[in-house]
Design a protein around this nucleic acid. Sequence first.
DNA 1: AAGAAAATAACACGACTGTGCGATAATGGC
DNA 2: GCCATTATCGCACAGTCGTGTTATTTTCTT
Lengths: 206, 206
Amino acid sequence: MPKIVDHEARRLELADAVGRVIAREGVNEVSIRSVAAEAGWSSGALRHYFTTRAELLAFACEQVVQRVTTRIAGLRHTGTVHQAVRDTLLETMPIDAQRHTEAAIAFAFLALGLSDPHLAEVQRTHFDGMYGLCLQLIEGLDSEGLLAPHTTSTELLARRLHALVDGLSIQRLAGHLPPESMITQLDAYLAEITLGTDETRDLVRR
Amino acid sequence: MPKIVDHEARRLELADAVGRVIAREGVNEVSIRSVAAEAGWSSGALRHYFTTRAELLAFACEQVVQRVTTRIAGLRHTGTVHQAVRDTLLETMPIDAQRHTEAAIAFAFLALGLSDPHLAEVQRTHFDGMYGLCLQLIEGLDSEGLLAPHTTSTELLARRLHALVDGLSIQRLAGHLPPESMITQLDAYLAEITLGTDETRDLVRR
DNA sequence: AAGAAAATAACACGACTGTGCGATAATGGC
DNA sequence: GCCATTATCGCACAGTCGTGTTATTTTCTT
């Protein structure tokens, strides 16, 4: 019988190499050859696990989504609900080098998904997942009575939060927004839509 | 004396061709050859007006910024201040085919600007311009007394508006958000940060 | 030990890219 | 008409891309 390798483990290893290439040279430099070289293999070897470039990228993106999802599921919230919401959202945003790479991979798919239908599907799943997360957080706040009085539906508030998080993330990725400002912006917005802080209580009492 | 052509007019014509290629095949398909073919010339002829690809793209982006700026400056606001703010922001967002292409060009630079320093500079100017516009709109509302009571600075509100507009635009460009929903989101947010509508009055009175 | 099958390597192919170069065509002042 | 100057064209170059194909190495079962 032949040599047996764990295909899934290899694919994960390759996905990591994709991340390293993106982190070092940008998403434009991702190719079969560059990823193979990064992983220390030949391009032919890589083709045993991914036959096309799109497959490689799609797997890398799915991997990012799953890793972020796992991290969020593993969060143990000790502080207030407000802080739990904040921590959850920050897990999806480029606040450090690792999450910067993850976000870069995710946003690179915005361009790739426009041409390849299968990549568009992966991207759609990611988008729906992010909206679902935002909706869950908003409705969680609402059911706890922590959401400030609002004139719109929770669905609309969730979509607004999603758009804001995406906007802040992409401005950070583009280098226009330092990480601290991004976090400050998120905190300020969460403070305004939630009760429990002096500032929002003042606002509502007025 | 030799044949004299209006270089600036030719460059504008080429920039238009770039827009058509992006609109039809996406920004990935923009190359010296594809743009030359779109404009009906040879690649050699194109090189008389743009020596490199980066030059061509940078000019196309600057052109977009200038066109949007001109349109905004030319707006004659007839309705409320609220509506003027809305119309101004919508000029920068992908609400129809033409503006979709413009936004696609602008956001394509997010990726390109990460590698090329000169493109990054063009992009930086665009970003600062958009923030300046948002700040101007927010402070305009504030000075007219139309801004709902807020606990944060106008600068922070302007950056938040900028991030929200960017987030909505990019979600629209990715095909995840229909144009109407994007506009609905913008209207809902503007309604919440401004006075003058029944809903916000109710909110504040509560 | 032998051999089958999987893993890997190495290379070839065609198509594309940006860019440069030389030849040709067109134009306007003399 | 002549000629300098510009515009335009077409092609060549070197590089990279994705993707196949073929050959070699490695490994496990019998």
